[in-house]
Design a protein around this nucleic acid. Structure first.
Length: 261
DNA sequence: ATGGTCGTTTAACGA
């Protein structure tokens, strides 16, 4: 089973890119973030014409997540538990059944949190606490799962081209990294980093400004976290960085994980 | 130190 996460930065602007990507690279399941669209306004044909079923959790103008799948999914849910007043569309779950068993797939667009400190940063840290609570609940229920998407977290200095420039940024401030460690310390595996230990220069995002991609001034902020039984079944994890060199690219590129399922 | 670029939606705001 091949699963890809992709922050598309606006599905209307990325419609052709996403359709071509699904046709050419054919993930079993694609986890999309920042669709920046309501459910009604999502150009469904770009996904459905490529042979995928679409599940959306949209919002007007900002945020918004979706799952496109060519395998059957059960029990699709929307929203991250823990705050009924939270109206931002950032989280979905669905269960996929493979030959080797089921996996609960958690797709997420974690708040950016800038500027920090401030209310947006407080919201980010509270959101991370809720995500940890969700991971704890899945572990307690012994549900094999993965959490994937745009985490807006730089786990370590190796994940950023210029750590000094970013030192006061919400993506890498100490409380952000502490929350990431509390989450991963539950026993979750950072799929890309465990497959590519100690290798700098691998990023999933490059700013549109200042020729960041050409200079490889990037950030590794799109992640796949695996619960223990899924970590045992992971056979590959790659970043599709050549997507950033296409015409009219998203500022993020897909991250792929292959599971023996 | 500032502005540099995109997308959504139309004057900012978010990233």
């Amino acid at each position: 089973m091949r699963i890809a996460t992709f922050n598309v930065n606006g599905i209307k602007a990325r419609a052709q890119t996403v359709e071509d990507w699904l046709r050419d690279d054919a993930p079993d399941i694609a986890i999309l973030q920042e669709i920046k669209s309501t459910d009604d306004a999502f150009p469904r044909e770009v996904v459905e014409d490529a042979g995928y079923t679409l599940h959306t959790h949209g919002q007007k103008g900002f945020n918004g997540v979706a799952i496109a799948t060519r395998v059957e999914l059960d029990d699709v849910t929307r929203g991250l538990p823990g705050d009924d007043a939270d109206e931002q569309a950032r989280y979905m779950e669905a269960t996929a059944i493979g030959n080797g068993g089921a996996v609960r797939i958690c797709g997420l667009y974690l708040p950016n949190g800038n500027p920090a400190p401030g209310p947006k940063y407080d919201y980010k840290l509270a959101w991370m606490e809720r995500l940890q609570a969700r991971a704890e609940a899945l572990l307690a229920d012994e549900v094999p799962f993965l959490m994937t998407g745009d985490f807006n977290v730089l786990p370590a200095d190796i994940d950023v081209a210029r750590p000094q420039v970013m030192k006061d940024d919400a993506l890498m401030l100490p409380p952000t990294r502490a929350a990431w460690r509390r989450l991963t310390n539950l026993g979750l595996t950072d799929a890309f980093r465990v497959r590519h230990p100690g290798q700098p220069g691998h990023y999933s995002f490059w700013d549109y400004q200042a020729n960041a991609f050409d200079r490889n001034h990037g950030l590794r902020i799109d992640h796949v976290l695996l619960s223990p039984p899924m970590a045992d079944r992971m056979t590959d994890c790659t970043i599709q960085s050549n997507m950033r060199a296409r015409d009219r690219p998203s500022d993020h590129v897909p991250v792929w994980v292959t599971l023996d399922l």
